[in-house]
Design a protein around this nucleic acid. Sequence first.
DNA 1: TACTATACGGAGGATGCCTCCGGTTGTGCA
DNA 2: TGCACAACCGGAGGCATCCTCCGTATAGTA
Lengths: 196, 196
Amino acid sequence: MCKSVGVGEVTAVETKRPMRADACRNRERVIESARAVFTARGSEASMEEIAKAAEVGVGTLYRHFPRRIDLVEAVYREDVEGLVTLAASLQEQEPWSALVAWLEGFVRYAQAKRTFLTELHEAFEKNADLALSSREKIAGAAGSVLARAQESGEARADVDGADLMQLVGGMCMARNATLEQNERLLVFVLDGLRAR
Amino acid sequence: MCKSVGVGEVTAVETKRPMRADACRNRERVIESARAVFTARGSEASMEEIAKAAEVGVGTLYRHFPRRIDLVEAVYREDVEGLVTLAASLQEQEPWSALVAWLEGFVRYAQAKRTFLTELHEAFEKNADLALSSREKIAGAAGSVLARAQESGEARADVDGADLMQLVGGMCMARNATLEQNERLLVFVLDGLRAR
DNA sequence: TACTATACGGAGGATGCCTCCGGTTGTGCA
DNA sequence: TGCACAACCGGAGGCATCCTCCGTATAGTA
């Protein structure tokens, strides 16, 4: 599950051994706790707090994520990856209900992202590629789910994945949107998306 | 020039005396230095650094701006105010060249804002009204300059101030835009804006 | 089991935000 | 002008947070 090394860079001579089991476990737990703490406390979240939540020393935390921003990035990367795998796992379902399910996931993702948007903004600032590649990945996932619904004739043909995430993402980012409101609005979007 | 008290709140019983001259001077200098330092070093800028640049102790800085975020807000408010007064001062000029001049000012403003966007984001987060009211002010200023150019028949009639700032602002915010590029692009926008 | 590379963890250095208070100075009034 | 005092200045230092360092513990291998 996590054979490669922390931040995503490749080591010089091909990592000889896989990551140790405890290290792997801890890494996952840190990311998970970080997501929870960031979501709950936004930019107030401290590294010590996250370490404590993961039941891990700060030293361990910093081994895996040398800078605070690396942790933010890791959480975000996992979220994006989650949307991609969600899209893949929905391949089996009916085209339209897969689209609905994916968009519901996307709304939850976008909603959660709002709470640590300031953090994320900084990550984007230092790593311009992150924003771009994530955008592409999500648009790709959206596209694949949408395409099936379009082929089956259930979704209108004159939109693409990028349009969809712009529309729904923008809606979720609006300064004072609640999750309930967004889920309600999604219904309208879906109605509008339906071919007639 | 600065009779009222710091952050923009009104004191209980009408401020008896105006602000002392030295205090007023220092306040201005702090804002000015803060703008420079924020622009140069973004979110890295420290309060000590800004105080030093303004040739003022940190104590003085904190008297005027109790929290870092108050300083960010003050800088931003001045910028916005600058755009409004710029619009007003251009009333005398020819409608079209006034529009050009104002948009050039707006591009510079938007470009500069990018460097401390992370800071600003936090300010918006804590003070939702700031974002909204600023937006309105700028749109108003844009509208007033645009309206004259429309009345004189030089600018096309199917846009308004909000459209304009959305278009040009968005252009400037793009992650890797340089000032030169933006000024160059502005020429295209202006061509597109011209009535035919 | 014994050995080694790897990981753990928390004390502490460095830095940055903000407070506090003794000394100074501008301002209104006589 | 000269006085009295409110308002202001400035920087040492408290406190929190990010991050480093290194002695100790442990997973994986022979």
